[in-house]
């Protein structure tokens, strides 16, 4: 299934990304902010120091929604454009591997790079928190890290699609920044605007469905479901979610957000390069 050619492509991608100065800068910044927020998260209340794990997760959720998509978009944005610019894309296309093997090899390498960066960034604070909160808290924190990686992989899949659709690196970067803005800021602003315009008349069901369309909101809800009493901290205080909105369903939607853009990447890649 995972051929040696795919492993070679994945390994090349992983090693490149882990050496990339942009990934190192973003990763280091993310780690630093994670530790600062973990320690000073309750500073507005006049308290400094590590707080209970749930409260820390609530604070870190906001950080992750900004940092991880940026990291993912940085990782995946130029992945095809770079190969095309170097001329190496033709070498892969002339090799005895399928388009699926090529794309899956690339994607796997990026997923591992993203997972390692995310785990490292959140792990430093996690280790300290675990010493304070004890082992029982480890499960919640590990789920939080897993959710964060899922969010990252969703954006990786989106950036992968962008890289396939657009030839030039500059256009890819511009588009990925726009995607980040839409999903992390503009979409929620639109929802707030909709609530204002309809004077709250759209109903919880429709509102919940609209939230489930946006991967960033899915991530927020996933974390909310594990730390319900701290929902006020992640801006969902007044929302009562329907009974069907449970972690497995949200993970399935998250999975669709990964699979659908990747499948579209495969389709458009074949159309653009093979049948161009």
């Amino acid at each position: 299934m995972f051929t040696d050619a795919m492993r070679a492509i994945a390994h090349k991608e992983l090693s490149d990304k882990l050496k990339s100065k942009w990934v190192i800068v973003i990763g280091a910044g993310f780690t630093l902010f994670t530790v600062i927020i973990s320690y000073f998260g309750a500073a507005p209340a006049g308290i400094a120091g590590f707080r209970p794990l749930d409260a820390t997760i609530a604070s870190l959720t906001s950080l992750v929604t900004y940092f991880i998509p940026i990291l993912a978009l940085t990782l995946g944005g130029g992945v095809i454009a770079d190969e095309k610019e170097k001329g190496t894309l033709e070498l892969f296309l002339a090799s005895p591997i399928s388009v699926g093997e090529f794309l899956l090899g690339k994607f796997s390498g990026l997923v591992i790079a993203l997972a390692l960066s995310t785990a490292a960034g959140l792990g430093v604070a996690g280790v300290v928190l675990l010493f304070k909160a004890g082992l029982p808290a480890a499960r919640s924190y590990l789920i939080f890290i897993a959710n964060s990686i899922i969010l990252g992989v969703i954006f990786l899949s989106l950036s992968f699609l962008t890289s396939v659709l657009l030839y030039e690196r500059t256009r890819v970067i511009a588009s990925t920044i726009l995607l980040w803005l839409v999903f992390t800021i503009l979409y929620d602003l639109g929802l707030v605007g909709l609530l204002i315009v309809t004077k709250g008349g759209i109903g919880t069901g429709v509102f919940s469905l609209l939230l489930m369309i946006n991967p960033v909101d899915i991530y927020r809800i996933l974390n909310f479901l594990s730390i319900g009493e701290f929902k006020v901290l992640i801006g969902l205080a007044s929302v009562e979610f329907p009974a069907y909105m449970r972690t497995p369903l949200l993970w399935v939607i998250g999975l669709l957000w990964i699979v659908v853009p990747f499948a579209a990447s495969y389709h458009f890649f074949k159309r653009r390069y093979l049948h161009a």
Binding site: K12, D16, K19, K86, G87, T88, E90, L91, A94
Partner: peptide, 13 residues
Amino acid sequence: VGYMPERVSFYDN
């Protein structure tokens, strides 16, 4: 098949 494209710069790193 062995293929040598006209323009390929490979990976600098």
